[in-house]
């Protein structure tokens, strides 16, 4: 099945799932004085791809893998608990579920017959990577393409926030993303491969500052970004 256009659609930052309002932790890192210019933004994106990017992509791929299984709801429930255990910061759990809810809204409108009803999470919402896995499966993407779009989204959103928060030259920021493309491909391949294993063995790459920054950000009175 030709899925190239579908992959581009799901990877597009204009896909209406609220990505524009999230900086992926960049707003807090900028406020902490840790990201100030193109160089530090590049390091931020590299680290984010290797941690949150890898974990998110692996869980999206694992949810995609769970779609055709007989006990899909139970499998998604296991993934939900495993992802919670990899998300130590309550602010980041909330963000993942809010983004999941936003993505679910889009997914239900576009693919009403996809098995979104099997997603765990209740009123708080399902974790974003799990929704993405189901949505990508409904769109007919392969598991690797699913991981690729997920990993891609974790860096492009933050990069775009960098342009808005730091007033960086958009051409230079785009060049950063171009330079990261190879790492993004590798991360996606690793994530898709990890999804073959049991949920407890999925990547759990930690980033202490991501947790710390997220908890600081959520206490601000005025935020430009939701995360």
């Amino acid at each position: 099945m030709p899925t190239s256009s579908m992959l581009l659609l799901l990877a597009d930052g204009r896909f209406p799932a609220g990505a524009h309002a999230h900086s992926g932790g960049l707003e807090a890192a900028v406020a902490a004085g840790r990201v100030t210019d193109l160089g530090t933004l590049g390091e931020f994106l590299r680290g984010r791809l290797a941690t949150a990017g890898l974990v998110g992509a692996a869980f999206a791929a694992a949810a995609h893998r769970a779609v055709p299984t007989a006990d899909r709801a139970a499998e998604l429930g296991r993934l939900d608990a495993e992802l919670d255990a990899r998300t130590a910061a309550p602010a980041l759990r909330t963000v993942s579920r809010r983004q999941g809810r936003a993505l679910l809204r889009a997914g239900r409108a576009i693919w009403p017959y996809a098995p979104f009803g099997d997603l765990p999470g209740g009123a708080a919402g399902p974790h974003q990577p799990l929704v993405f896995g189901l949505l990508a499966a409904a769109a007919g993407l392969s598991r690797t393409e699913t991981a690729l779009a997920a990993a891609h989204g974790t860096v492009t959103g933050a990069a775009s926030a960098g342009v808005r928060l730091l007033g960086l030259d958009p051409y230079h920021v785009q060049a950063l993303l171009i330079a990261l493309a190879g790492a993004c491909d590798t991360t996606a391949a690793d994530a898709a491969r990890a999804a073959d294993g049991p949920p407890e063995e999925l990547p759990a790459a930690a980033a202490p500052l991501a947790d710390i920054h997220a908890e600081a950000h959520v206490t601000w009175e005025v935020r430009l970004f939701a995360s």
Binding site: P16, A17, G18, R101, R105, L224
Partner: peptide, 19 residues
């Protein structure tokens, strides 16, 4: 929160407002 894109939040990508 509109991520510095207030137009996007009310026109192109309305999920956060619907939420």
């Amino acid at each position: 929160e509109t991520g510095c894109c207030p137009h996007t939040a009310i026109r192109d990508d309305i999920g956060a407002n619907l939420d």
